[in-house]
Write a protein that binds this DNA or RNA. Sequence first.
RNA 1: GGGCCUGUAGCUCAGGUGGUUAGAGCGUUACACUGAUAAUGUAAAGGUCCCUGGUUCGAGUCCAGGCAGGCCCA
Length: 1120
Amino acid sequence: MKYPEYKAVNYAEVANEILEFWEKEDIFRKSIDEREGSPTFTFYEGPPSANGTPGIHHVMARTIKDIFCRYKTLKGFQVNRKGGWDTHGLPVELQVEKELGITKEDIGKKISVAEYNQKCREAVMRFTGLWSDMTDKMGYWVDMDAPYITYKNEYIESLWNLLKRLYDKGLLYKGYTIQPYSPAAGTGLSSHELNQPGTYRDVKDTSMTAQFKVQKDEKSQFLFDQAGDDEVYILAWTTTPWTLPSNAALTVGAGIHYSLVKTFNPYTHLPVNVVLASDRIGAYFNEKGKDGDFEAYPTSDKKILPWTVLGTFKGSELTGIHYDQLLPYVQPEEGDAFRVISGDFVTTEDGTGVVHTAPTFGADDFRVAQQNGVPAILVKDENGKDMPLVDRKGRFVKEVADFALEYVKAEYYTDEEIAAETEKQGRDKYLSVDERISIKLKEENRAFNVQKYEHNYPHCWRTDKPVLYYPLDSWFIKTTAVKDRLAELNKTINWKPESTGTGRFGNWLENLVDWNLSRSRYWGTPLPIWRNDEGEEICIGSVEELSQEIEKSIAAGFMTENYLKGGDYESFDLHRPYVDDVILVSESGKKLFREPDLIDVWFDSGAMPYAQWHMPFENKEIFDKAYPADFISEGVDQTRGWFFTLHAIAGMLYDSVAFKNVVSTGLVLDKNGNKMSKRLGNAVDPFETLKNYGADPTRWYMITNAQPWDNLRFDLAGVTEVRNKFFGTLTNTYNFFALYANLDGYNFTGNPDLSKCTELDKWVLSKLQTLIKEVDAAYEDYEPTKAGRAIQEFVTDQLSNWYVRLGRRRFWKGEISDDKKAAYETLGLCLKTVSQLMSPIAPFYADWLYKNLTGDAEKVSVHLSDMPVAKEEWINADLQTSMDYAQRISSMIHALRKANKLKVRQPLSKVLVPVLSKETRQLISSVDELIKTEVNIKSVEYLDDDSGVLSKKVKPNFKTLGPKYGKNMKDVAAAINGMSKEDLKSLETSGKIQLAVGEIELGDVEIQTEDLPGYLTAQDGNLTVALDITITEELKNEGIARDFVNKIQNYRKDSGFEVTDKINIQLQNNNEELAKAIEVNKDYICQEVQALSLEVIDSLSDAAELEMDEFVLVVKIRTA
RNA sequence: GGGCCUGUAGCUCAGGUGGUUAGAGCGUUACACUGAUAAUGUAAAGGUCCCUGGUUCGAGUCCAGGCAGGCCCA
């Protein structure tokens, strides 16, 4: 075969060609089918939502996913990857509402729920075409022919099955959660609504600091001991005094310091002992009153409170202390209320550092109470259901006797009502509930401070009235019941990076609260629960089951027809509104109505391992082989989203992890580190980028520039760099190989005969084996960045810039020979191996390279090949060290030449290399031919100790000295630096020496050689070279000859000769020195420039003039 | 406010278990080289390793506290 040669390679075109080839040959399918019967490697696709267009960050995320799936395929696994679409959720609803110009209010009025949902169904799949296009163009392999779609009846049925199983385990229950609620509008508000402009306003409310009376027991005894009194109060501050009747606990910060302060109540002037955060004393007490006169206070003007600190302690010492209920209207039926607990949200920025905790009216309060087993203060409504002390209209319930049926916020009254209330209070001005609670507590010696407080508070965007944080009904999954098990299972997951697993995810699991499933919306999976006010309920787990229940309901006369019956899954819809019309019958024969909620869309995605296969109704065998996942990857922002929901469902229902390895990826930012957004116009268009740069350079850049979990600053200049530097070099190297292999008609076999190989061949093959090991380990460890960087370094530094550059003469000199074959075998094998190693990251280019190299001889695609396995016996550590020396010595000689204006074409006679050991000498001499060629030096000579001309320098080796001498390091270092020649000699012969500071061994020092007088010397670490720059006449002539060759070669090329053309040269004799140099080196010159004749003649017409240093060449070249 | 991540040259990034002189690529400048040529080599300039304390003979590296940016959650 001929190796295709390329003039200029366009990587985007390469991608197009290969994509066409993949599609024609169905390579993706084959890569899976050919591994039939092999162990499976399971990947779960986190479903994207197709209601938006894909961005460049999706290319990043999908590259990561693709890399490991391709890698595992190369390693012999069968890797199925089913695509999917996430179709439910608020973003879809909002988009549809925007397009239709409606709000949630209008649903059911201007537009029916059925029509609305139909719009959502259309909108959500709108951009699937764009997504498929991007998937193809970026080279991401995922099965898009049979994706799972979360709105399908089959998918929803699987979800219902999971929910039913949770329900049967008692893990699905109805409770409440604290949400922003507008009593005036009678509705809860979403965070989206709360983020409308103008909702947060500065308002003045009555704030108060209340005194909670500590009960005396073992736990609190120390307070009473310090106070020397029977009354101790804890101070807590609130901006909503109306929540005080609902107080159930006081929350402190475990690490915050608190003080016990003796003082007087400013309203009753009675002596009191109060507890508050030490940092807050300044906010409550005047410095003038510190350790003031307690005796004089009752008779003074009482303007300044005397106070004194009696003791200080941490919040953790207060937890568990009980106190008397402040406003004892209602007591909880069970549970341990009215005690001090600790919470992480407590600060000392305002208030007293003690938070009054009303579980029914604050989200933090609710959470901390639940975590500590503190009950909420509830009453029964007329139906016997639990309700808080404030009703849904915002009024106190009748049990709060002093304020029964009064609105807790004055804003909820109309002006007329205010007037009526004022009259009822018998005052000339209306006093709010907050104000009258303050007065009441002042009178009871329970208020320590009351004042107006201005703060920022949210208001309902529709009614303009303040919102309440209020408990609303919700369905929950009791994840807290399996919290410990989830944490345990998490420890078996391999997280990349580890900190996301232990930190972000681990902490989240530790502070887990029950999963709030309810969403009051329209487009989503309906909650399959029907219930009535008597508390009878039924949870449906399948279409079949629902159908049977409907039949019962028809029999009971509640329904007339069964919309599920007889049809296949295409003929009905499990969404609202149809499912809402279903009325079931309870065991006692009463009507059951569906709970109107939809479930959190995160449940949709977390259930995909089961629902994508319509489990448990179908595909059980497939599922068993594909569970749990070996690998998933998504953005780190999914930690509490998809990663959690997968984990939670798997833990609760299968007592298993859902995934064994997970890579959480960072963000893709613009080149300045700003978030990309379409609005700001700094978003990078993935299609443009793929078109202009090609998928492979784009992918390669993304992977090698930053670790997947670090944020990536995406800069197109970086893609250009990767394209030129890495892909350009690799393509050049391939072209070089193809050019000469074709000229010689040689096809490499991939099995070089080491006995025929040069040191350089063996070296690069040794490096190649090391590379295979390194890259394989990196992929195995989910470290694609390390893999890519290692490949890149090998290609540019080792293979191209050293192996090819030093060895290129072998490729174009002479006829085909064993040596030439060895060179072709070596280079060919390196290129082919590189194509395999890089194929997970750059799938198009790698396949292109592989196919160019192998033709039809092997697998038709690199992606069907097997990952190369390193040949340990080819790894030669000595050779690698030798070559390292060669590179460093060459580099130093280049530097010396440069500094002394001695160009490389001028040969020099010798370089001296001092060597301190036989081993070093051996290592260098094995490669000194290479050094000589590379830097154009006639000989390398070695200077060892016996030569007597070496002067040596000794330096301390801190690493070994450290543990021995520790504190005395400075003295020891000084002593070593001050060693005499004789000292060093005796250290070298006996292996140790006794200095004033102690005994030093040979390993404790580093010995280096110093400059050699009379030579140009250079040093790099432990290596020194000394260059002899004497230029003899012979050397000078040779230098001229080489310059001449160079000029002729350029001229040949400029004149358009082919590489293979033979020529005849005529040179005018215009300089004796030049003529002589040419004459002496005639054979050499002819061979280099492929000249059959070279004549130096006295006169020449029609000749070209070429500048060459101090000479002018008048020369004529003709094809022979 | 909490959890997690990041901070090293103009830019993008390396820098096992602490070891004294902190590296690479790109970019800039200069000079070379030129059957790989949209390449290549050599060199120069460029650093408060975010800050402050601490541990240590020795800290970019370990500890504590900050600062800045990001993500998630309140």
